[in-house]
Design a protein around this nucleic acid. Structure first.
Lengths: 340, 340
DNA sequence: TTGAAAGCGGTACCAT
DNA sequence: ATGGTACCGCTTTCAA
């Protein structure tokens, strides 16, 4: 289909030695020129010759060789395995990446599904990152933290619900979501609260945290919480709705707005009035929640600005050895609409 | 060594030399033992001593040093910058990663937002990946392809709508989505078709392709297509719905189900009957589309199995230099519900 | 069965 | 203003 001639099977990748040879200088000079080394003065004609040679050969420096020699890299590792949590989280991580790149770090995501926590930590450590930022939903053990710091990571940061000993914990405590939802329902006079728990395993870490928060808020008020497993399918929701009269619940907090909408529709189809019989609240404040009727109440999440986090990481890298920082990045508020 | 007062207790990362010293053997022996080298026989007591020393020191091999010495890595680079396309695409890439890891590759995602196409290609090339898989929405130029192959990548694969000269193109042609949607609307007797175009820039590459497909299908039948820019906000949708009578349209194909639901709700609020006055169809066949009334028609996408793609990549790596492969991974079908 | 040594690609110190 | 060279951590002959 393509008319381009095929490259020969064995292409030899140009090295700085090739550039040096073509420019008629030493490898040292090549390094000085291409890195704009300020401590050494190189004549302009030489600079030009080196630059031209590099361009002509399509020379690209070898990051591994460079960081091996330097004894350190500027790689920030971001383990990634299906980050749930919707747009706010996604936006947070995109901005974090931009912020770090602006500070001249190389951000690399490492897919770690199907590895145990310590296998994963070892795999990350092999890359010798200068910092590791573990998002919520990815497990990091104290032992894993040890592996990473002992292999040179200057900053190990977890964003999960709980701090990990030895790591800096910039916490996104999903329990707050459950607390806010249940407190809202309590204020509206509800006492028997179902909590929709996705059966999809990738949701587990978030949903467990949100349930724990719901529990805490309910217990403090002497109210009842009932976990309700649900698959993200209409059939599963209808089965659950059919059992509704037996459950004796007057409110549902669903894992997020999508599960809430699924549940609400199933309840309505089963003849349960929302919010009269059962109040419904979701989480994430997704736009679609406003498109159903009644409009969906929701817990809105606000994450701290990612740019300051990038700068914090930079500071940790430059001045390592500080005692672990702990800080909560998540704020929640309830958006009350018509379903509760 | 640590005489400089500026640097606090520099933690020295254990190397294979440290392991060798502790075990009382040479570095070569350490390498043999830890890599289970079959060509060399090492006595069991020695093996055990080496293993224990490595464990005790928390030794983790240095991936950069290893691949520098080996002359090649097993890293597959997956540039990532906000992959749109919803669950089917997300699932596809997760499975692809698992498949590659099963074949013993290290999959690394490299966030490339905010870089030009060739800057990004250079940044990728510095990591000397053995293969690069460029998802739709990330730009790759023929020049970028050259940079990558010349720096040792054995397989460069694009998944965008159009093949890139020099790269293998395993195409996901989003135009099919537009074609399927419009053909469906034509069959239902509609001739004046609006196409909702998200104004969010991260959607641009997909939405442009889908519009192009819609155009092609409409032109073939002498029907009219009208692009409708829309922000993902209720206000934007209501503004658009208010202008509806002037537009003279009898159908809308929205970029995806979320935009379709937003549009449909706004139309209903403005007194436009769906599907009587205006038919609506989305894309992605998301579950939430079934929760609104009327239930949303949608274009369902099916992506080829990722496991075969992983094996194809493996084959390309082992036998490089084959002529570019081109193949379409995307199949579409229309799920007809009540909105069209 | 184990060890000594070369060398992968770059960088930086020390000569010249 | 440049060049020679040692060395980063690891693998892999070749020798002992």
């Amino acid at each position: 289909m393509s008319q381009l001639p095929q490259q020969p099977a064995e292409v030899s990748v140009p090295t700085s030695a090739d550039v040096a040879r073509l420019a008629g200088v030493s490898r040292a000079t090549v390094s000085y020129v291409l890195n704009n080394n300020a401590t050494v003065r190189i004549s302009d004609p030489t600079r030009r010759r080196v630059r031209e040679a590099a361009l002509q050969l399509g020379y690209v420096p070898h990051a591994a060789a460079r960081s091996l020699r330097a004894g350190h890299s500027r790689m920030v590792l971001l383990p990634s395995g299906h980050i749930p949590g919707g747009p706010p989280h996604q936006y947070f991580f995109e901005e974090l990446q931009s912020g770090l790149r602006r500070l001249d770090y190389t951000v690399v995501q490492y897919g770690s599904l199907g590895l145990t926590a310590d296998e994963a930590a070892t795999a990350w450590a092999e890359l010798r990152p200068v910092a590791v930022v573990v998002p919520p939903g990815i497990e990091l053990t104290p032992h894993g933290t040890g592996i990473l710091t002992r292999s040179g990571a200057k900053a190990v940061i977890t964003l999960g619900p709980d701090p990990v000993p030895g790591a800096h914990g910039l916490v996104m405590d999903q329990r707050r979501v459950g607390v806010s939802a249940v407190e809202h329902l309590l204020v509206r006079g509800r006492r028997h609260i179902g909590v929709v728990m996705p059966e999809e395993p990738c949701r587990a870490s978030f949903s467990e945290s949100r349930l724990a928060g719901a529990r805490r808020a309910a217990e403090a008020a002497g109210a009842r919480v009932c976990p309700l497993p649900l698959r993200y399918e209409e059939e599963s929701a209808h089965d659950l709705a059919a059992r509704w009269p037996d459950l004796g619940l007057d409110a549902v907090f669903a894992y997020n707005d999508e599960y809430a909408m699924l549940m609400m529709r199933a309840l309505q189809d089963a003849g349960v009035a929302v919010p009269a019989d059962t109040a419904v609240i979701g989480a994430d404040d997704a736009l679609i929640g406003r498109l159903l009727r009644p409009r969906l109440s929701s817990v809105r999440m606000e994450l701290a600005m990612p740019q300051p986090l990038a700068e914090t990481i930079d500071r940790m890298v430059q001045h390592p050895g500080g005692s672990p920082v702990h800080h909560d990045l998540l704020r929640t508020s309830v958006v009350h609409r018509e379903s509760s």
